[in-house]
Amino acid sequence: MKPAPFEWHAPDSVEAALALKAAHGDDARFLAGGQSLVPAMNFRIAQPAVLVDLNRAPGLGTIAQDAEGALRIGAMARNARIERDATARGSHPILAEALHEVAHPQIRNRGTLGGNLAHADPASEMPAVMLALGARFLLRSLRGAREVPAEEFFLGPLATALGPDEMLAEIRLPPLPPRTGTAFLEVARRRGDYAMMGVAAVVTLDADGRCTHARIACCSAGPTPMAAPLAAAALEGSRLEEADIAGAAALVRQEVDPMGSVHASPAYQRHLAGVVAARALRLAKARAA
């Protein structure tokens, strides 16, 4: 399990990295934390001819709130740092909650949020969290920059809207309104494994405890992270009573399209979608109050 040979570049600026990617296109892969790419290379499932290592390009690791209150996370911010970052924990506590389920500390010490999202594994927790938070991604290339909403970014298993010359440079998370509760829950075989089913839930209540806005997204639930817009819509206007949550959970079960794995049959995954969605919604509601 040794990687095939490759040409290695470690540019010292984002611009140089973009130039290399533009020059090599699909023959080149960006190397971020390497926690998904390097195993794939060790198995020789991935054999990129060129690696553009982003670890020496400054400016990609910032975590900060912008003037509008949105949280901006540089693509190379390590997951362990995001997990501990006071700003991120304050503005979007679901990040730390979900990151805690991403593999193990040794992996999160190295792995980056940008790398995780660009890898676009539908079993991964963070793409679903991005859908639930309404994230927007800043994609950069020599041609310029564009912002893509999370729901348009994930196109299929390991497939994204990134062009061959583009880099996912920054993740932008809009601020959560007051009385918003979030929760990420999953059922995995073991701590740190990809979930058999995971659900990110975001609910906003008005002063009367009525749900004004909800978002639900699931991982390991289909070819991409799967939003459950019908379930979310059904909750809006409700008081998130048990019957409302049960109704939404039933819709989530219909909205997911699990593919099954060696660990879980699609039927069991679909069942779990309802179970986990209900639990996540209860938790989000409690946190919103």
Binding site: R189, H263, A264, S265, A267, Y268, Q269
Partner: peptide, 13 residues
């Protein structure tokens, strides 16, 4: 056993 297999057993799979 596994959770998935148990679910099948319990639900008549």
């Amino acid at each position: 056993l596994s959770p998935s297999r148990l679910w099948e057993i319990v639900h008549g799979g």
